[in-house]
């Protein structure tokens, strides 16, 4: 056996326990989501129902308004990511390219905002949103998610920006491009890996966030996916687990696909953002 084959087997053996634990909940979701409703609670429990009931997904989709929640989650995560990048890029550029008075303070300020989590500030945030008339508006989440991601994004982008040689911009500058042109045409395309990583992380934050959505959203047609699923479980007289599991399984798929597609990009982006 070649060294590589032996190494591969060893590695897979080492990773197996962790993978079992990671995949276990997915197996549970799948198992429960395709069981006939009447068998979900049967004792002793078993992995397989008497037949595969794909109708659960259909029932879930119509009963819960899943499609709407999916669209809401996508909208909030994508818009928050966009807003966050638009604000973070110039700030990160300034941090990477300039030395200016108060730079240290600004860095501290960012670190401190990073330490505050939505749940700690939820009451104040809610009052702010009420003041702006944004209660029960998806845009309130866009604002807050962007704000809570800002510090991390600036920091990520700044460390990557610092690795881009200044000569690249200089060359464009000397060739007669304006500063803004050199920034948008030369610099940002070079920073694309870091932008992608930052965007992914920010998107995941929005996709996963729970407490702010719980507090600011009111009507069920505005619910994000996470909130929708929680709504199927919390404080109910009875929980229909086959529906809940069908919903979680389906909610997981979009991000799982994004990961499978982008994971290499993600790691490379992080690698290049050599942290100082």
């Amino acid at each position: 056996m070649s060294t590589r084959a032996r190494k591969s087997i060893l590695y897979w053996l080492l990773l197996t326990p962790l993978m079992v634990v990671i995949l276990f909940p997915y197996a549970v979701m799948l198992s429960t989501a395709i069981k006939p409703a009447a068998e979900v609670m049967r004792f002793p429990p078993s992995w397989l129902g008497s037949r595969i009931e794909l109708g659960n997904f259909l029932e879930m989709w119509t009963k819960t308004g899943f499609g709407r929640a999916l669209a809401n989650s996508l909208y909030v995560s994508a818009m928050a990511t966009l807003l966050c990048l638009v604000v973070a890029i110039p700030a990160a550029y300034a941090m990477a390219r300039f030395r200016f008075a108060g730079q240290g303070w600004y860095r501290q300020f960012l670190l401190i905002t990073q330490m505050l989590s939505p749940i700690v500030l939820v009451i104040g945030i809610f009052r702010l949103m009420a003041l702006l008339g944004l209660v029960d508006q998806l845009n309130s989440l866009v604002l807050t998610y962007a704000a809570f991601n800002l510090a991390f994004s600036i920091w990520m982008l700044q460390s990557y920006f610092a690795t881009i040689p200044i000569e690249v911009e200089e060359a464009a500058y000397i060739d007669g491009a304006s500063w803004l042109q050199s920034l948008t045409r030369i610099f940002l395309p070079l920073a694309l890996p870091a932008l992608a990583v930052t965007a992914i992380l920010s998107f995941i934050f929005g996709w996963n966030e729970f407490v702010l959505a719980l507090t600011t959203l009111r009507s069920s047609e505005k619910y994000t996916l996470t909130l929708k699923v929680f709504d199927l479980v919390g404080g109910r007289y009875s929980v229909e687990w086959h529906i809940v599991m069908a919903a979680t399984l389906l909610a997981t798929l979009p991000v799982a696909v994004i990961f499978a597609w982008l994971q290499r990009y993600l790691i490379r982006g992080l690698a290049l953002a050599a942290v100082k």
Partner: peptide, 25 residues
């Protein structure tokens, strides 16, 4: 090693579900 791409994706999977949903599951 053989299958590294698959292994990476599996290890990243918990990231794809929100904490709330993970906890519910």
């Amino acid at each position: 090693f053989a299958g590294r791409g698959v292994a990476r994706v599996i290890i990243m999977l918990p990231w794809a579900i929100s904490l709330t949903m993970t906890a519910i599951v």
